[in-house]
Amino acid sequence: LSKDSSVSCASCHKPAFAFSDTVAFSTGIFGKLTSRNTPSVLNMKNRPYFFWDGRAATLEEQALIPIANPDEMGLAITEAVARLNQSDEYRKLFKKIFGQLPNAKNLGAAFAAFERTLETEDSKFDDWANGNGELTQQEERGRQLFVSNRAKCFDCHSTQDFTNDEFKNIGLYNGNTQKDEGRFFITKEQKDLGRFKTPGLRNIAVTGPYMHDGRFKTLEQVVQYYNNPYMFVDDPLNMDTLLLQPLQLSNQDNADLVAFLKTLTDRRFLK
């Protein structure tokens, strides 16, 4: 469903990497690059909005946006629907499932139905949480640190999918070298300047690179960033109050956090 038939959803949301991409910016039609890092589409069933800036309110709405985006798949939805209606197989399938021929509404519904099946709950952490396994000493230290007031991870990465579904400015905007305005692009409200949706952390060990711009290749770099954002970005603007003071975590603390984060990987993605 791309303009030149060279790009599919799985071109950027690679199943082997927890339905994320392995590069900072994905390649769309005609070699164009996306403007933000491709997030995983796993565990989206309970999310209240989608995309880094929350521009879509439903999975049905979200599913159609990349198809029409000129830097991604570049195909008008009307043309996508026309293509599907030229296929005997898809005409039969849509008629069977929806009682209708393909149209924009049921195309979005079909994608959304598939995405809602992509829930993961078979990790080492899940075994521990269900009383069916143990964490190593290092993983347990990392877990305790994760939920502590020292590291503050759980303030944003909470609930069963490790996200509070809020928008946060973590210091990656200064209006100079870092210019992506994030949620502000959608709301035009000053409080949203530099804010991005807090991603869930399930399968985080296999979904790098990280952040909305894919700047960090490893979890170790991510943890080091949160320890002291000022070491990475000069004069961040509108940064969340949780990060205004460096966390003062030790190298051992950082390693323990990474060890815990790796327990969140579903077994189907373990290599």
Rank of each mutant, 00 (worst) to 15 (best):
S2D: 08
K3A: 15
V7G: 03
A10Q: 09
C12P: 09
H13R: 05
D21H: 15
V23A: 12
F25E: 03
F30L: 14
G31V: 14
G31T: 12
G31D: 13
K32V: 14
T34W: 10
S35H: 09
R36W: 04
S40K: 08
S40D: 13
M44I: 09
K45G: 05
R47P: 00
P48Y: 07
P48T: 11
W52A: 04
W52P: 01
Q62Y: 11
A63F: 07
I65S: 04
A68F: 03
A68R: 06
N69G: 08
N69H: 15
P70S: 13
D71M: 11
M73F: 02
A76D: 14
A80W: 07
V81C: 08
Q86I: 00
Q86S: 12
E89G: 01
K92N: 08
K96C: 00
I97P: 00
F98A: 05
Q100V: 09
L101P: 04
P102T: 04
N103L: 09
A104R: 10
K105C: 00
L107Y: 02
A110H: 01
A110I: 00
F111Q: 09
A112K: 05
A113P: 05
T117L: 15
T117E: 15
E119V: 15
T120S: 12
D122I: 00
K124W: 01
F125N: 01
F125W: 13
D127P: 00
N130F: 11
G133W: 07
G133T: 07
E134L: 15
Q137N: 13
S148E: 04
S148Q: 03
S148N: 04
K152S: 06
D155Q: 12
H157D: 11
S158A: 12
T159E: 11
E166S: 13
G171W: 05
L172D: 05
L172S: 05
N174S: 10
N174T: 08
D180Q: 12
D180R: 08
E181F: 12
G182K: 03
F185S: 13
I186K: 10
K188S: 15
Q190L: 15
Q190F: 12
Q190C: 00
D192P: 09
L193A: 11
G194E: 07
K197E: 00
K197R: 10
R202F: 09
T207F: 14
P209T: 04
Y210F: 15
H212R: 01
R215W: 10
T218W: 05
Q221F: 05
Q221V: 05
V222R: 07
Q224F: 13
N227G: 13
M231A: 15
V233W: 03
D235W: 02
M239F: 05
D240S: 14
D240G: 12
Q248G: 08
N251Y: 01
Q252V: 06
L257C: 06
L257E: 02
L257P: 05
A259L: 02
K262W: 01
K262V: 04
R268F: 00
F269L: 03
